[in-house]
Amino acid sequence: MKNGVKGLVLIGLGFFLISRLNNGTIFFYINSRFVWLTLLAGIGFFLVAAGYLFESQAARSSHAGEDHDHADHDHHDHHDHSHNLSRIGLLLILLPIVLGTLIPPRPLGATAMADREVSVSGLSSAVAPKSSQVASSDHKKNLLDWLVAFDAKNDPQAFDGQEAEVVGFVYRDGRFADDTFMVSRFIVSCCVADATPIGLIVQWPDAASLKTDSWVEVSGAFQAGEFDGQKTPILVAQQVQPTDPPNQPYLFP
């Protein structure tokens, strides 16, 4: 592969990263904590690509004639540049851009949830001691804050009567009665590879009519109950309102 092509590929990757930052879909992939790294990498790609430009200026005079004839040969155009990336190599490198462009970006939702263990009544561990401390004071508790609180108290009844207002997507499967659903979010500590779903069981007469994967805002009060043989606080909804997916679909502990 010639230097010009390599430079273009790097610029393409840079643009890809920057465009994901620009339209906010970056939050579909990684924890917001690492977004600055993506920005740095985007800028870095342009810098490294500039290295090729500077060098190929120097090289242009010496290689000028032979470049066109080599277009169809992938291997061993002798002292030309470095590790001659093959067509397949090029395709692999461009694959993230290709897949990212062809398949419309979408955050993980109910489909991905079917694969994973969902924690309903508290987290198995202190995933987010820090965020919960900040949140507990005044700001509205999100799903993760509630689950951390359940975990800390370890008593489903302790929350009876407390009011909550949470946003999440709708999840239902065979275990749910007609009047229950789960309002869920994924928590992502690094990138979606480690995404873990969490959820609150909601009681709502029209639960069966809600579309799986649609985003809702649920307000109501907790009442200890049982789900799937497990004692857990259940959010008895006063209101379930359809809402737009938030800019950051995941919660970052």
Partner: peptide
């Protein structure tokens, strides 16, 4: 694709 891009985007700066 989301998981693939997630790992890729996270690893690429490093």
């Amino acid at each position: 694709v989301t998981i693939f891009l997630g790992i890729f985007i996270e690893a690429v700066p490093f």
